[in-house]
């Protein structure tokens, strides 16, 4: 919408395979639009840090309280799978960074390729996560079929924590480690899913040629989101799999 003869600013497309971008009417310049969106997104990422931060605070609180429980609990996780997943996420962070770079340099094919590889990384990560959850299920450390059964007050039993192997029987409140593990990785996993969805969404735009050297904002922002997912995992991996 324009008024008093002010027309919206249009960023031209750098080539025939691209489309121009029209700056939103309440901004004066493309720089203003870019910086506003970017600042807004950084603020959003700050809220994500604090949201996850609550979980990390809970982790440290109980790591301090039940150090032995956490040490033994951590040994029940497969650190090799965790390390593989760390590598997968780091690689996908790299492909994401390369994807943003390709958009910045108006390389449409490469943009799509690197974004696609990032989605692949997300899927591999989720697949490995599924394998890990299944193992926990098998050992009765997180029995998913009884997850929502509620606490059995009379017998003082938690239906989802059955510990078939008795690996946690010598440490207090063994379920706490797995509850924290499940909560942190599930919320992180949800972010992986959302991130993958967002990447697929920008891939659609990229296929239409909407992102190029003149305008690559959505790719940039989704990239930041994906790196945040990686960032959180960088801390989750040593804390959960290699409990210090």
């Amino acid at each position: 919408m324009s008024h008093d003869g002010h027309h919206s600013v249009v960023i031209p497309a750098p080539g025939p395979e691209f489309v121009p971008h029209t700056v939103a009417h309440h901004f004066d310049t493309p720089v203003q639009e870019f910086q506003a969106a970017k600042l807004g997104f950084w603020l959003f990422l700050a809220t994500e840090i604090l949201l996850f931060g609550g979980l990390f605070a809970a982790y440290f609180y109980y790591h301090e309280t039940y150090a032995e429980t956490f040490r033994v609990g951590g040994q029940q996780l497969d650190w090799q799978l965790g390390a593989v997943n760390t590598t997968v996420l780091l690689l996908s962070s790299w492909t994401m960074a390369m994807g943003v770079r390709s958009a910045q340099t108006s390389q449409k094919g490469k943009t799509l390729l690197f974004l696609g590889l990032t989605v692949l990384g997300a899927l591999i990560f989720l697949g490995i996560k599924y394998v890990e959850y299944s193992a926990k299920n098998q050992h009765g450390l997180i029995v998913f079929s009884h997850l929502f059964d509620g606490y059995d007050q009379a017998n003082k039993q938690l239906p989802w924590f059955q510990d078939y192997g008795g690996v946690m029987k010598d440490v207090p409140h063994g379920h706490l480690f797995f509850a924290i593990y499940l909560t942190m990785t599930a919320i992180h996993g949800l972010h992986v899913v959302i991130g993958a969805g967002l990447i697929i969404w920008v891939m659609k735009g990229a296929a239409k040629g909407r992102f190029h050297a003149g305008y690559f904002l959505p790719v940039d922002l989704v990239g930041l989101y994906w790196h945040l997912v990686d960032l959180i995992w960088i801390f989750l991996f040593p804390l959960l799999y290699l409990v210090p």
Binding site: V31, W94, A97, F216
Partner: peptide, 24 residues
Amino acid sequence: HHSHGALQMGHHHVSSSQQFLSVL
């Protein structure tokens, strides 16, 4: 904002592929 005449999002630093690889 006004100092940028170019119809772009502004001047952006683009990292080299080499640098990204080193970081990885």
